[in-house]
Design a protein around this nucleic acid. Structure first.
Length: 729
DNA sequence: GCAATTTACTTTTTT
DNA sequence: AGTAAATTGC
């Protein structure tokens, strides 16, 4: 193996193979290369690839690393255990399921399934969701699980009465998951720990199997993951973790930054190797990123440096609103593309929230610039897709109550809420799943004959196809099931734009299933469902695709682009505000840092003076992060509409009526109409078709000026003033 | 029991 | 603004 291309720290990180090692790897310091070489190096020293466990943050990262290792050492790479914590341990659980009283075809509940279960339990326990927000309950339960706190140990005094209720919900929640033969995402991490702690033989088996453990993105592991690593590495202590505390951005998901800060305490003989030379970005970009991140108090001391050229200054662009921001970016991309210096996939637009993608999509379409939105509304979370998947899940795990409830009356079989409530009662009384309950309806006197018949025919349908899973491949099975249930036909016949969309999505799913069947001959329906439960949108994204990439700052972790736009740099959006405490602000700052350090050549930051949120315009203040930047590396730009105007931040002229001044909470807008009489909120207007009415809301600028008009007939209309020729009365 | 209408809620980020 | 949930009317 040729290690001569590595610098001395990198070389150490590759060759120090025995004992615990912490690699503190700054952004762009060649972390992936080090991990890749380290694995190849281990194998070249005679370590059996099947004794190596490498845990990554995304499946995509695992696949890419495996591919690189294959280049270095050949087909042996296939024997590596490589993947995300969730996918590796989900597989382990399938194998060991019997010891946990689960079947190997258990279902994986995603966040939506889990939330719906929590809502159902709250309903049963008569806990109003006004009293307790189900999402809050979900997050409390998840956090407890991440900390390995079981329901019986759940502290019920912290938030008083609420915590009591949450504890009660948590208890039923775990029971219900077990009786449904289902695991949520947290269980995939917790159950392996239970398994290993319960049975020393199993622990020894896996300790022997995984003699060398490598963990990427260690700063984003949670307590359960930490515990699992501690147990697994207990035999040899050969554990190498790689991470950067400055890039820890998943605290909200239970990630515990102490895992990396305290690594040397937990593994006393650990060596620390620092990778501080950045090979990715220009000096300007790095200086900007560094000047911001150094405001954080909680961090490991380090000094990231580069030999790269200073490069262009980082641009900060002040725009009027979201549209202006989107247009500016399209224009910039177009100009840069004309220079022939870049490919279209050298550009990425990064934002804090998925909802921000819309204005860019519109502008990119208009400018005929190809783009891909990574994530957004995830394909597998769409209703119609989840419905089809629910059928498949039921076939291999009929006890999956969430799937049962999704499809028992879809398409409509004449089963309503009343019948369902009765069935749920039967299932609770008999401590069995809903599906099993449909098998014992003869004894029930509560249900009508009609309802019984409907439930039983559903029971028969599932039983029939469950048997067919033996004989048909996944593709044939799904197609025939969809045909018999008439789902596709239903959407096609309805003919609305919405249902046509759903129709096409299902076709797309069918194509995906066909591909899977062809390229994974040996794999079963269980494998397929497992795959799609644990795949993320970023996993599916092809960086080779010829398009501008749009994604959240979170999704961008681990990626790099020659040109990066970080948009919406406004207080409240980036940093995103809720009840802001210092920890949250530091995490937002790290997120901003992650974004900046994705850029190799050019970094463009932008903020808007006004932004559409929840449908109306709000004045914005530029992000405090922009003020933290070292000005020597920055170039400020603006719309050029009117510079002095631009400087009167949030105080520019808004034509307000006396009425409006009283209610100053109304969003600001600029009235560009040249009419003598001014259209404002409260103005009486007349419309050729709808008659007379009153303006209730306004938003937009210039040609995009929009009004919500309540007409005297009672109709409320959203009108674009450019088209709707309103007369002021 | 179902479709149509109204209301509420969302925008944090994801395995 | 756009979707999901809830409510109402048939």
């Amino acid at each position: 193996m040729n290690l001569s291309t590595l610098n001395s720290s990198q070389k150490n990180a590759v060759t120090e193979t025995e004992g615990p090692v912490l690699v503190v790897a700054g952004a762009g310091s060649g972390k992936t290369m080090v991990l890749t070489y380290r694995i190849a190096y281990l194998i070249s020293k005679g370590v059996n690839p099947s004794n190596i466990l490498a845990l990554t943050f995304t499946n995509k990262a695992a696949d890419e690393m495996k591919e690189r290792i294959r280049h270095l050492i050949g087909a042996q790479a296939e024997k590596l255990s490589m993947g995300t914590f969730h996918s590796i341990f989900a597989r382990m659980l399938r194998f060991e399921s019997a010891s946990l009283n689960y079947s190997s075809s258990y279902s994986i509940y995603d966040t939506d399934d889990s939330l719906s279960l929590i809502k159902r339990i709250m309903n049963e326990l008569d806990i109003s969701d006004n009293f307790l927000n189900p999402r809050f309950v979900q997050s409390r339960i998840s956090k407890a699980k991440n900390k390995l706190i079981r329901p019986e140990a759940y502290e019920n005094n912290f938030f008083g009465i609420h915590e009591n209720k949450i504890k009660a919900i948590y208890e039923v929640y775990q029971q219900r998951l077990a009786s449904s033969n289902a695991m949520d995402f947290d269980d995939l991490l917790i159950k392996p720990i239970e398994l290993i702690e319960k049975d020393a033989k199993i622990l020894q088996k896996y300790q022997k199997r995984f003699q060398y453990i490598l963990v990427d993105e260690y700063q984003d592991t949670n307590h359960a993951q930490y515990k699992m690593l501690k147990l697994l590495s207990g035999g040899t202590n050969n554990i190498c973790v790689v991470g950067d505390d400055a890039q820890s951005i998943y605290k909200w998901r239970g990630a515990d930054i102490r895992n990396i800060l305290d690594f040397t305490r937990d593994y006393s003989e650990a060596r620390i190797i620092r990778l501080e030379q950045n090979y990715r970005s220009t000096r300007s970009i790095l200086s900007v990123a560094d000047s911001v991140i150094k405001r954080n108090l909680n961090q490991i001391e380090k000094n990231l440096w580069t030999e790269n050229e200073e490069g262009n200054k980082v641009s900060v662009y002040e725009c009027l609103d979201d549209k202006d921001e989107a247009n500016y970016i399209c224009k910039t991309i177009t100009v840069k593309m004309m220079s022939k210096e870049f490919n279209i996939n050298d550009f990425a637009i990064l934002y804090r929230t998925n909802a921000q993608s819309r204005s860019f999509e519109e502008a990119l379409i208009k400018s005929t610039i190809p783009y891909v939105v990574v994530a957004g509304t995830e394909f597998y979370r769409r209703k119609e897709i989840k419905d089809v998947i629910a059928y498949l899940r039921l076939l291999i795990n009929p006890d999956d109550d969430e799937s049962f409830l999704r499809v028992v009356n879809f398409p409509s079989r004449g089963i309503g809420q009343v019948s369902l409530d009765s069935l749920m009662k039967i299932s609770i009384d008999n401590h069995c799943s809903l599906f099993k309950s449909t098998g014992i309806l003869n004894e029930s006197s509560v249900l009508s004959e009609r309802a019984k018949k409907n439930f039983m025919s559903f029971h028969d349908l599932i039983t029939k196809y469950a048997q067919l899973t033996e004989r048909l491949n996944i593709n044939e099975l799904t197609r025939s099931l969809i045909d018999e249930t008439g789902i596709l036909k239903m959407y096609k016949e309805e003919g609305s734009e919405d249902s046509l969309n759903r129709y096409e999505n299902i076709l797309q799913l069918l194509n995906g299933i066909q591909d899977f069947t062809i390229s994974n001959q040996g794999k079963s329906l269980v494998d397929f469902l497992n795959d799609i439960a644990l795949i993320s949108e970023i996993d599916k994204w092809e960086d080779k695709s010829n398009a501008v990439a749009l994604m959240t700052l979170h999704s961008a972790k681990g990626l790099e682009f020659k040109n990066v736009f970080i948009v919406g740099c406004e207080d409240g959006l980036l940093p995103l505000s809720r009840d802001s405490n210092v920890d949250d602000l530091e995490e937002e700052r790290r997120l901003f840092y992650v974004g900046c350090t994705r850029a190799k050549k050019n970094l463009h930051l932008s903020f808007a003076r006004n932004r559409n949120r929840f449908g109306s315009l709000y004045p914005q203040t530029r992000s405090r992060f922009l003020d933290e930047i070292d000005e020597r590396f920055v170039q400020f730009e603006n719309t050029g509409v009117s510079y002095s105007y631009a400087h009167r931040r949030n105080t520019y002229s808004v034509k307000r009526t006396a009425q409006q001044k009283q209610k100053s909470v109304m969003p600001n807008y600029e009235d560009f109409s040249q009419e003598e009489k001014i259209l404002t909120i409260g103005s009486k207007v007349s419309h050729d078709v709808f008659g007379e009415g009153t303006i209730r809301q306004m938003s937009g600028f210039g040609d995009n000026l929009k009004a919500v008009v309540e007409f005297d007939s009672g109709v409320r209309k959203h009108l674009m003033l450019k088209f709707a020729k309103l007369k002021v009365l």
